[in-house]
Simulated assay, not measured.
Amino acid sequence: MKKFWLVSAMAAALMLAACSDESSEPAETEEAATEETAEEASTETEEAAEESTEPTLYLVGDEVTSGDLTVTVTDTGVAEQIDETNRVYEINMTVTNNGEGEVSLSSEDFSLTDLSDEEKAAYGDAAEWTIAAGETAEGSLQYESAATTAFKLFGTIGEEEVEWRLPGITSLD
């Protein structure tokens, strides 16, 4: 029985020794090391964000400024029924010219795809806006589409490629 208690006491002492903090560094050094580790993690996160080539995705209501233009998709939805399976999907937007000269923008600067990257055909006449300096214009883009859960609208505004994620046509009632 004495051996049992002796072995148990030795095992407990070994476990406590293994779990103890053997650090001989002062507390200030440990805090500095923690701060340095946090700074390194922050720097790595920032570098990863800069290396990411994923474009910013905008939603309905988001203002997108590129160069002298500010574009806002204000509303989307079904405008009319074409046949049993297809509808006209309309995207309403405002475009503000913040520059000093006249700017033109057309429906050819935009394309619409579903989430499987199938491009949708433009519907109706091509839209074109000429916006005087300091003015705002409203316009709409129309595309032919069947039911889909969401759309991606790509636009070239000035020199920048912009992408919006838009709600889809969820029912063909």
Rank of each mutant, 00 (worst) to 15 (best):
E47Y: 11
F4Y: 10
S66K: 11
S52L: 04
T149V: 14
E160L: 10
P26A: 14
E118K: 15
V60Q: 06
T94S: 08
A18W: 05
W5F: 13
S20P: 01
E118Q: 12
S116H: 11
E84F: 13
S111Q: 10
F151R: 00
E63N: 11
K120T: 04
A32W: 13
A11R: 04
Y58Q: 04
G139R: 04
Q81W: 08
T37M: 13
T85M: 10
M93T: 04
N86L: 06
E28F: 10
Q81D: 02
K120F: 05
K120G: 08
P167W: 03
E163K: 12
L115F: 06
E47N: 14
L69N: 01
I131Q: 00
D62R: 05
G139K: 07
S171K: 07
S66Y: 01
R165S: 14
W164E: 02
S106A: 01
W129F: 15
F110Y: 10
T85V: 08
A150R: 06
T148S: 13
G77H: 04
F151M: 00
E119K: 15
F151T: 03
Y143Q: 01
S8T: 11
F154P: 06
D75M: 05
N92A: 07
I131V: 14
Y143D: 06
G155Q: 03
E119L: 13
E118D: 12
D117V: 11
N92D: 09
V162S: 00
T85G: 00
E135M: 12
E51Q: 13
S145E: 07
E47Q: 15
T70M: 04
L14V: 10
E50F: 06
S145N: 06
N86W: 02
V60C: 03
V73F: 02
D173C: 01
S107D: 05
P167N: 05
G67C: 03
P55K: 08
A11P: 02
D83I: 01
E80R: 11
T37I: 15
E36P: 06
E84I: 04
A146F: 03
A121S: 14
N92S: 12
T148H: 08
D75L: 07
N97V: 07
G101W: 08
V60M: 01
G168S: 01
E118S: 10
I157E: 01
R87Y: 03
T29C: 06
S52V: 03
S52F: 00
E63C: 05
T56Q: 10
T56M: 07
A48D: 05
L105T: 01
D173Y: 08
L6Y: 12
R87W: 02
D21H: 04
L115T: 14
G168T: 00
E161A: 09
V73C: 03
V88H: 01
V78W: 00
D75I: 07
S24D: 11
L172K: 08
Q142K: 15
E50S: 11
A9E: 02
T76C: 03
T53R: 09
E31C: 11
G61Y: 02
A38Y: 05
S111W: 14
T34F: 09
T156K: 15
L153V: 09
G99Y: 02
P55S: 08
G77K: 04
